Amino acid sequence: MVRANATLTPKGRLLLAQRIFDNGWPIIRAAEHFNVSWPTAHRPSPTAHRQTVGGPLRSDGRRRNGPY
């Protein structure tokens, strides 16, 4: 569930990743544009970019290995 006023919704993360990877924006500039800190902008950008390039990632949070 995404909060209504959240800055980095899935769509926002996608836009952030596009600004950084496709448009070549520096992470600090993109962070200022989205009004988040640069570590916050740096964290979701590779994941969101992989989702756009290779399709959606599995994000259900379950373990993929183990005794279960």
Score class of each variant (00 low, 15 high):
27 I>H: 08
15 L>F: 02
30 A>L: 04
56 P>Q: 12
40 T>F: 02
53 V>C: 13
63 R>A: 10
43 R>P: 01
63 R>T: 08
67 P>H: 05
14 L>D: 15
64 R>M: 05
46 P>C: 09
2 V>I: 12
63 R>N: 09
54 G>H: 13
16 L>E: 08
23 N>L: 10
16 L>V: 06
67 P>E: 02
22 D>G: 06
21 F>K: 06
64 R>D: 04
45 S>D: 03
39 P>S: 00
47 T>M: 08
57 L>N: 11
38 W>F: 01
60 D>G: 07
40 T>C: 10
67 P>R: 06
20 I>C: 01
32 E>M: 01
30 A>V: 09
45 S>W: 07
5 N>R: 14
22 D>Y: 01
58 R>V: 14
50 R>M: 13
39 P>Q: 03
68 Y>A: 13
15 L>W: 03
51 Q>G: 06
52 T>E: 10
6 A>H: 13
24 G>R: 03
11 K>Y: 03
27 I>D: 01
12 G>E: 10
39 P>H: 03
64 R>F: 05
19 R>N: 01
60 D>L: 07
54 G>E: 14
54 G>I: 05
18 Q>E: 14
65 N>K: 04
48 A>M: 10
41 A>Y: 03
32 E>F: 01
13 R>P: 01
62 R>P: 04
51 Q>E: 15
24 G>T: 05
25 W>F: 03
39 P>K: 00
51 Q>K: 10
7 T>R: 15
61 G>Q: 02
65 N>R: 09
5 N>K: 13
1 M>Q: 11
44 P>Q: 06
36 V>W: 10
46 P>N: 12
15 L>V: 04
37 S>T: 13
53 V>L: 15
22 D>F: 06
54 G>L: 15
49 H>F: 14
63 R>W: 08
13 R>C: 11
8 L>D: 05
2 V>Q: 15
